[in-house]
Design a protein around this nucleic acid. Structure first.
Length: 320
DNA sequence: CATTCGTGAAGACGAAT
DNA sequence: ATTCGATTTCACGAATG
């Protein structure tokens, strides 16, 4: 064990990947925890196969350490073979550090090519690899967490084994999987944002998502207004108290039927608007509309529905 | 003057046929 | 594939302060 650690420490001069982002020329930073090299400026993931030498588990004595020590990347959903495949390097020296003769180098190149092909054994695996790449790309663009990404990949795997891909685009199902994962995990997910980050339009994205939900029995929790309140409140630079009161208002209204069938964003925006009006930090409908993407008209409609549930409002004040 | 409120036409969506 | 019902959005003008 110690030899490995020592080796790594003494390897300060090991060939680091280029320090400039191929996309924007920005600075590349390594994230050893996730085994990625990302550009600090544009977020491009330059390399995903850095090896994390850290132990998989905590070890309390040397025998445990021995039992659990390993090399290679951690197991992950994010690679089509769970990260278990091997890759042949392109070094031009042999294990003893001697230069290879030209014909040996040609031989190695041939072997490497065959080896690579063998890793993508079947067409299905190749497709899966492509889908995972696409999912990771979108997740990276949209700044989504690793957990959500991996669940998206699990969903994609299920879709693939359920034969739901045939005749549909891989990118489309990939986008729908990520969207589904975001929805399941209660992340505010605007279909338009996903459509922009993917290669499919909003319409197909939603259609494919419906198929996934239906066929895979995903517990597709519809986004609740609560999911948006915090986001909206901070977009409008309102204090926490406003968000809390807005949530309380929604909760009171939710016991009745006025919230059913209405768009969650509309309800959240209206609740924020109402509470803000009655707070020291009011916001106009226009401001709320711009910050939330909900139309003023809709804010008005929902606000009218929610009004009876405002704290200290006469319950039956509806007599024109 | 800015903000809020109301309305009718039009589009999008889901469900059902 | 089409139709239907409910909802949201757009564009406008009126009312309100």
């Amino acid at each position: 064990m110690t030899t490995l650690v020592k080796k790594r420490e003494s390897n300060e001069t090991r060939a680091k990947p280029a320090h400039e982002c191929p996309e924007c020329g920005g600075h590349l930073a390594t994230d050893p925890k996730h085994g990625e090299v990302v550009c600090e400026d544009c977020g491009l993931v330059a390399s995903e196969r850095e090896i994390d030498f850290g132990p998989e588990w905590r070890a309390f004595d040397s025998s445990e350490r021995q039992g659990r020590a390993r090399t290679g990347s951690p197991l992950t959903e994010s690679l089509h073979d769970y990260g278990l495949s091997t890759v042949m390097g392109r070094e031009t020296r042999d294990a003893q550090g001697r230069h290879l003769t030209p014909d040996k180098r040609l031989l190695m190149a041939r072997m490497r090519r065959l080896h690579q092909r063998s890793t993508y054994r079947s067409g299905a695996a190749r497709n899966l690899a492509a889908a995972i790449t696409e999912i990771r790309r979108m997740a990276s663009v949209m700044d989504m967490g690793q957990y959500v990404t991996e669940q998206a990949i699990r969903i994609y795997r299920r879709a693939a084994s359920g034969d739901l891909i045939r005749g549909r685009s891989i990118d489309g199902i990939a986008a729908a999987s990520l969207y589904a994962s975001a929805r399941i995990n209660g992340l505010p997910s605007d279909p338009d944002v996903f459509a922009r980050a993917s290669h499919v339009d909003r319409r197909t994205l939603l259609r494919l998502h419906r198929i996934l939900v239906h066929e895979l029995d995903l517990k597709a929790r519809p986004a609740t207004p609560y999911d948006h309140v915090n986001r909206f409140a901070s977009a409008l630079t309102l204090p926490h108290e406003v968000a809390e009161r807005a949530r309380a208002l929604l909760e009171r209204a939710d016991r009745t039927l006025v919230t059913s069938g209405r768009s969650p964003t509309g309800l959240a925006a209206a609740a924020i608007y109402i509470v803000a009006q009655r707070s020291p930090t009011p916001r106009t409908q226009r401001q709320v509309s711009e910050a939330t993407g909900v139309t003023e008209v809709t804010i008005r409609h929902r606000a009218r529905d929610l009004l009876p549930f405002v704290e200290g409002a006469a319950t039956a004040a509806n007599a024109p």
